[in-house]
């Protein structure tokens, strides 16, 4: 069993994640415009709205990237996460749930209709994606018989969970895009709302929210590796390299899917999620339970 990384790794984690998230943003837009945008936002003059709840906006914008980095703390690079918690899967789920509070607070804060609609959209989307997502996480934990992320990765030495739990893996990928309100699930910050939750944000606040969203996407893509793709296990290359390669592959798949899929409205997705995806996830968990339990 792997140990936790040394203490300095906790400080290094955001420094590692931030450039990676920026790289994902560049790959997503197929240009270096995000780099220029980051520099512009860092020096941009802040703009305020009337009767704004500045505390709510600030809490929300800071909480989103913070939650993403804290969730990344249990994702192992190779075999070693920053913190090898015994309940790592639950921790990951709890941290990404903080995104609910963060996005809604950011939408509420500026006292602006469009950003408020964006915040509410994210809560509706959350209610849609969260149940299949939790069941997918539970299925992976059930397959390994442990909530510890490194043990789940170790349980896949022989066969990847993605191979014999394909439905759980697919649901996890869907919810990874949905929780970072990105791609087909980007409606909370959609163009039809002039930017949704980010409408009124300027400067560093905007950078934190939009960057936090990329961080969340990156973290959830990286978490797919220990949960479903065998973690750092693989031939020839060292563990950390396999983790990076597989994370890159998951991200490439998500970016490819984004270009193939139209935007999803959350009211329609809620019905699909509750009528089709949740029973599918329960069925997948049942199959895994029947295979594992005896």
């Amino acid at each position: 069993m792997a140990d936790s990384a040394p203490l300095w790794a906790a400080a290094a984690l955001p420094l590692l994640l931030a450039p990676a998230a920026l790289a994902v943003a560049c790959a997503d837009g197929r240009s270096v415009a995000p780099v220029r945008e980051v520099l512009r936002l860092l020096v941009q003059q802040p703009r305020r709205t009337r009767a704004a709840d500045a505390l709510a906006t600030r809490t929300g914008t800071v909480l989103l990237p913070l939650a993403a980095v804290l969730a990344a703390a249990v994702v192992p690079l190779g075999a070693t996460p920053v913190s090898d918690l015994g309940d790592g899967v639950v921790w990951f789920n709890a941290m990404e749930a903080l995104a609910w509070a963060a996005v809604w607070l950011t939408g509420w804060g500026p006292n602006s209709t469009l950003s408020l609609v964006g915040g509410y959209r994210f809560l509706a989307q959350g209610l849609a994606y969260e149940i299949p997502h939790m069941l997918a996480l539970t299925t992976a934990a059930l397959g390994a018989g442990s909530l510890r992320v490194t043990e789940i990765a170790d349980a896949q030495r022989g066969l990847w969970f993605a191979v014999w739990m394909p439905a759980a893996f697919a649901l996890y990928l869907l919810s990874a895009a949905a929780m970072s309100f990105w791609g087909p699930f980007g409606q909370p910050a959609g163009r039809d709302l002039a930017g949704g939750v980010a409408t009124e944000l300027t400067g560093v606040g905007r950078l934190l929210l939009l960057g936090g969203r990329r961080l969340l996407l990156l973290t959830s893509a990286a978490m797919a590796v220990p949960l479903f793709l065998g973690g750092g296990h693989g031939p020839l290359l060292p563990g950390w390299a396999w983790t990076l390669v597989k994370t890159g592959a998951v991200l490439a798949l998500l970016l490819w899917l984004r270009r193939r899929l139209p935007g999803v409205r959350m009211d329609r997705y809620t019905e699909l999620s509750w009528v089709v995806l949740t029973p599918l996830a329960v069925l997948q968990a049942l199959v895994v339970a029947v295979v594992v339990l005896p």
């Binding site: 015994g86 309940d87 749930a97 809604w104």
Partner: peptide
């Protein structure tokens, strides 16, 4: 009580986000 603590974070965050509505 690690599990209970983390589950409280998870449940209360979602619960309060819905409660705000």
């Amino acid at each position: 009580l690690q599990y209970l603590g983390v589950v409280i974070v998870l449940m209360m965050t979602i619960e309060m986000a819905v409660m705000a509505v």
